[in-house]
């Protein structure tokens, strides 16, 4: 479980996060949504420790990051898997080497054990027979799957995904969404996804947090989002005519 209290972050005098509280539970997929510039990426990077918060508290499994020493922080980072928006695969490494990289860095497994684990996770993300290809030889969807495989190869407790559907066609987006949700449930991972994809919101949002101007404007589930009368959420989620109609049908039912 991840708990956040009153988290604030600013850059050059501009406050981007203005005090956000949230709880992300184990085995559940939580989504962060909001307009561009609402602070979603800064929020995610602050949770990951890529930005230090100016104020507030972040705790992982009941231990606050502020109270952790260097070793504890290093250990925590090994419990975190991250899927970046652009996949962030290492260009000079093959698919197999990319996925094996965290194992080589942080475990004492033999080459055979590592290969078995790599093949297992690649199989889990439905990406077999591509081990020796380089990232540039893969499609966007395949790269995302390799990124997911790399993120889960060390059995992390926490999984963060920054816009995992960006640049993907709707069918591949659904495959990626389902994959993340299945892995979250199977491995009891705390998953936090930063997304713009409304399909993800409707399909896999067990918990949704809507950010606006650096503040948490709304919180609920994918079912709640159909019923909400919060103007900012309605304007954001139902900005397209299609989703307006979907909502109408859902509410009528």
């Amino acid at each position: 479980m991840i708990e956040i209290k009153g988290i604030k972050k600013g850059f050059n005098g501009t406050e981007v996060l203005k005090g956000i509280d949230a709880v992300f539970e184990s085995g559940k997929t939580s989504l962060i949504i909001g307009q561009s510039g609402s602070g979603k990426t800064v929020f995610l990077k602050t949770l990951l420790g890529l930005h230090l918060p100016d104020d507030g508290m972040i705790s992982y499994g009941g231990i606050t990051t502020a109270s952790m020493d260097t070793n504890a922080k290093r250990q925590l980072k090994q419990d975190i898997g991250m899927v970046f928006q652009g996949s962030a695969l290492f260009d000079s490494l093959t698919v197999e080497e990319n996925v094996m990289f965290p194992l080589k860095m942080f475990t004492k497994q033999t080459k055979k054990e590592m290969l078995e684990r790599v093949n297992f996770v690649l199989n889990r993300v439905n990406l077999t027979n591509n081990n020796q290809k380089f990232p540039a030889e893969l499609s966007g969807g395949m790269q995302k799957r390799v990124a997911i495989a790399r993120a889960i190869v060390t059995n992390p407790k926490y999984l963060f995904c920054d816009e995992p559907n960006s640049g993907l066609d709707p069918r591949t987006s659904i495959v990626i969404d389902n994959l993340i949700q299945e892995i979250t449930e199977e491995c009891n991972i705390t998953t936090v996804i930063n997304t713009h994809d409304m399909n993800s919101v409707m399909e896999i949002g067990e918990k949704i947090i809507f950010l606006q101007k650096g503040l948490k404007e709304w919180e609920g589930t994918s079912k709640d989002i159909f019923k909400t009368d919060n103007e900012a959420v309605v304007n954001f989620v139902y900005s397209s005519n299609l989703f307006k109609k979907v909502r109408k049908v859902y509410l009528a039912e």
Partner: peptide, 17 residues
């Protein structure tokens, strides 16, 4: 620079490297 703008350096940092 390419590693930085494509978030590969962030990926290393997130892993604790």
């Amino acid at each position: 620079g390419t590693m930085r703008v494509t978030e590969q350096i962030d990926a290393l940092e997130v892993m604790g490297i």
